[in-house]
């Protein structure tokens, strides 16, 4: 039987752009170019490797996001994913992590899955909680933050490098996995891959396709509220000296003045 892998990918504002908030205190997605979150490229990569090692596998990439989020799906398809699902709905604007996990869970169930692979965190929200939430909602094991992952005979194994220890994990499929940026470089799309991606199917679903009420998601359905967002004041310009042979000593003098020595 075919191994059905669903990769959750997020379309995010470019971190090197001038990211800011919109008037309603949601992340502004209009003024900064968006892209497939770099950390989700690692998830796509591991999905492709697992699929290549399996006898028969299918990789579906799934995103919840605005119209432009199709770009993220295209990128993943050109890396080698087989098909894509785009959940898009006006009422999704402002959805928080709890709501996003609901939409992803319903979409993953509708798509059918043996393995869900997520990134370690989105580069805009950086919460790193959606994979755990997804596992809780789906009622399947969470095997998260892996720097190494493999699938064999219906079992997923991996290594999780934590603060206090490095752990070997194991769970039966179906399961939700997330991988870190230590899991191995993501491939670049080849020219052939980019051309092939244009012909790959991208399905579009809205909230009604997933039996989700508008009140459960979006800004109104959110469980958290941002009251204010203030730009951090630029740091006051510091002293910069050129080393003419005494740079280390000058630095020590500064540190002593600040009572660090």
């Amino acid at each position: 039987m075919s191994l059905r892998i669903v990769v959750t990918v997020k379309y995010v504002p470019d971190a090197t752009g001038d990211r800011h908030f919109a008037d309603d205190l949601t992340v502004d997605r209009d003024d900064v170019d968006g892209l497939l979150s770099e950390l989700d490229e690692y998830a796509v990569e591991q999905a492709l490797q697992i699929a290549e090692d399996a006898d028969d596998a299918e990789v579906t990439v799934l995103t919840v996001g605005p119209e432009d989020a199709k770009d993220a799906l295209r990128k993943a398809l050109s890396m080698g994913a087989d098909k894509a699902i785009h959940v898009e709905d006006e009422d999704l604007h402002g959805t928080d992590a709890i709501g996003t996990s609901l939409v992803l869970a319903k979409a993953v169930e509708k798509a059918g899955y043996d393995l869900v692979i997520s990134g370690m965190a989105s580069t805009d929200g950086t919460m790193g909680v959606v994979p755990a939430l997804l596992a809780e909602r789906l009622g399947v094991p969470q095997v998260t933050l892996l720097s190494e992952v493999s699938v064999e005979d219906g079992t997923v194994k991996g290594r999780r490098d934590g603060d206090a220890a490095s752990e070997q994990l194991e769970a039966s499929l179906p399961a939700v996995v997330s991988v870190t940026d230590q899991s191995g470089e993501a491939r670049y799309p080849s020219f052939k891959g980019i051309m092939a991606a244009k012909k790959k199917p991208v399905e579009s679903w809205d909230l009604s396709d997933l039996d989700i009420d508008a009140e459960e998601v979006g800004l109104d359905g959110a469980y958290t509220k941002v009251d204010s967002a203030t730009e951090r004041p630029a740091r006051t310009a510091g002293t910069i000296v050129k080393d003419e042979g005494e740079g280390g000593k000058q630095l020590a003098e500064f540190l002593a003045g600040q009572k660090f020595i």
């Binding site: 990211r19 205190l25 941002v226 009251d227 204010s228 967002a229 203030t230 951090r232």
Partner: peptide, 8 residues
């Protein structure tokens, strides 16, 4: 770059 204040 930003500081936010939020509530549950």
């Amino acid at each position: 770059a930003f500081t936010t204040k939020s509530r549950v």
